[in-house]
């Protein structure tokens, strides 16, 4: 079973990312769960969302304490929140950052496997707004697989309507531009 923790700020689409991932997995015939960190949501405040993906029915209803992957939507969050908290030994941290791998390790003390992409720049150039959740899912698809890129694109289409095209474009660019770095 894969367990993904999403970090973002209220309004950045962390919950939507988790939902899109789970729904794409379910459409592929897998089992999946997506849930927010339960409670009031405040725009701008650090928030978390969670997704589980597995080939058999998922019954565990506890919060995810030991994620297999962590996805961070906001470049500033790793400086504020220990985003790799509880990450399993071979887990991956997927960051929206313009930093190099060395800088990430030095600045945030993350030793795990990394997937780095400057999603702010991609989103700004393609979508015209710094909304990075669909872009970051592109990095996730490259970093951990879990679902086919086409399954997520289908979700974007049903969820975002006429805005889907640009989101798909940003999603595809992130897949090309993401840099995968082994753990130290």
């Amino acid at each position: 079973m894969h367990e993904v923790r999403f970090h973002g700020r209220g309004g950045q689409g962390a919950v939507t990312s988790a939902e899109l991932l789970a729904q794409a997995a379910i459409d592929e015939g897998k089992s999946a769960q997506a849930f927010p960190s339960f409670g009031p949501e405040r725009r701008g405040a650090p928030v978390m969302a969670f997704a589980r993906v597995a080939d058999r029915p998922i019954r565990n209803r506890t919060v995810i304490q030991e994620p297999t992957a962590v996805l961070v939507l906001d470049p500033a969050l790793p400086g504020l929140v220990k985003v790799d908290d509880g990450l399993v030994a071979d887990g991956v941290v997927i960051l929206n950052t313009s930093r190099s791998a060395d800088e990430v390790r030095k600045d945030f003390g993350i030793v795990a496997k990394l997937a780095l992409v400057d999603a702010n720049r991609i989103a700004r150039e393609v979508i015209g707004r710094v909304i990075t959740n669909t872009t970051m899912l592109g990095a996730l698809v490259r970093a951990v697989g879990l679902v086919e890129a086409s399954s997520l694109e289908k979700q974007f289409e049903s969820r975002f309507g006429r805005l889907a095209a640009k989101n798909i474009q940003a999603f595809q660019r992130a897949q090309q531009e993401v840099v995968l770095v082994d753990a130290v």
Partner: peptide, 10 residues
């Protein structure tokens, strides 16, 4: 509440 109400699943 939340455990089911706010959780997406198949």
């Amino acid at each position: 509440g939340f455990i089911l109400s706010h959780t997406i699943e198949p």
